[in-house]
Design a protein around this nucleic acid. Structure first.
Length: 269
DNA sequence: CGAAACTCCTGAGCGC
DNA sequence: TGCGCTCAGGAGTTTC
């Protein structure tokens, strides 16, 4: 389940292999992703060079002189750099073929997406996104301000891409735990001081996960390359019933906004 | 405008 | 060994 750290790790993994490389061909074996892969890509892409591999929220942008490929990994997507001619396996839906390698998208659940935009930042999917959590625009004041006209659970607030991008279900639970805020607390009943703590926790959790992800970079060249979820580092996510690292009481689990949430009802208020 | 439900999809885990 | 069921989840879309 790629969250922002996994997407950033993917970006860093593939960039050195494809930046400056010319796309020779695209092979689409299964166009039915979140949205259909545009058929015209097989005409427009060959001959274009990838100038940069960038990331906005959980979208990867493969930018050429004519426009950008917008790539989202959804729930189950993964990218690999492979030697040209490597036979595809099940769920290997798309290849970008370069002279010396190919970039392969595998996505069993097909929640991912591959789109094209001349100006990706103006694309409908990207234009309304909130700030990057690791950027200077993101801080406690921003969260607090966003919270004032709402009353949803604070967990929903931080998972809303219009508020801040890249905080998925796992890291939402983790950062609320670090900040000592109960995930179900109404977002307009959290003080500015606590939002400052929360913003710092989000930044810290994501930054740490990205640093951990760096250690798996070499996997992108291997057939079995799989970015880990850093499970052993998670304090509460997936640990219902286990002792809270802070107080030893059992960690609770309940659904908030259709998603499983993990928290300590003693340490988080 | 906000908020909640609904939707896409397949693999893993479980009970029998 | 296999069947059927439930759950998981990113995030756009729909509905109220």
């Amino acid at each position: 389940m790629p969250e922002l750290p996994e997407v950033e790790t993917s970006r860093r993994g593939i960039a050195p292999h494809i930046e400056g490389q010319t796309i020779r061909q695209i092979a689409v074996r299964e166009p039915r992703l979140r949205w259909p892969v545009p058929p015209e890509l097989s005409k427009t892409l060959p001959g274009l060079a990838i100038e940069r591999v960038e990331r906005r929220a959980k979208y990867l942008l493969l930018t050429t002189a004519r426009g950008s490929l917008i790539l989202h990994l959804g729930m189950s997507g993964s990218l690999r750099i492979l030697p040209p001619g490597t036979p595809p396996q099940k769920h290997d839906h798309v290849d970008l073929v370069f002279d010396d390698c190919l970039l392969r998208l595998r996505d069993p659940r097909r929640f991912g997406a591959l789109l094209w935009a001349e100006d990706p930042m103006q694309h409908q999917l990207l234009v309304n996104l909130g700030p990057e959590p690791l950027s200077a625009e993101f801080d406690g004041e921003h969260l607090w301000q966003q919270a004032q006209r709402r009353r949803c659970p604070v967990k929903n607030l931080v998972m809303d891409g219009g508020v801040v991008v890249g905080v998925g279900n796992i890291y939402a639970s983790e950062s609320l735990y670090l900040a000592g805020i109960h995930p179900n607390r109404a977002c307009n009943r959290v003080s500015l001081a606590r939002y400052r703590r929360l913003a710092e926790a989000i930044r810290q959790v994501l930054q740490h996960a990205i640093e951990q992800g760096g250690t798996t970079l070499r996997d992108f060249q291997r057939q079995d390359g799989s970015p880990g979820y850093f499970e052993q580092q998670l304090k509460v996510y997936g640990r219902a019933g286990e002792p809270c690292p802070g107080c030893g009481r059992p960690i609770s689990q309940r659904r908030i906004g259709q998603r499983s949430s993990f928290y300590c009802s003693h340490c988080q208020r």
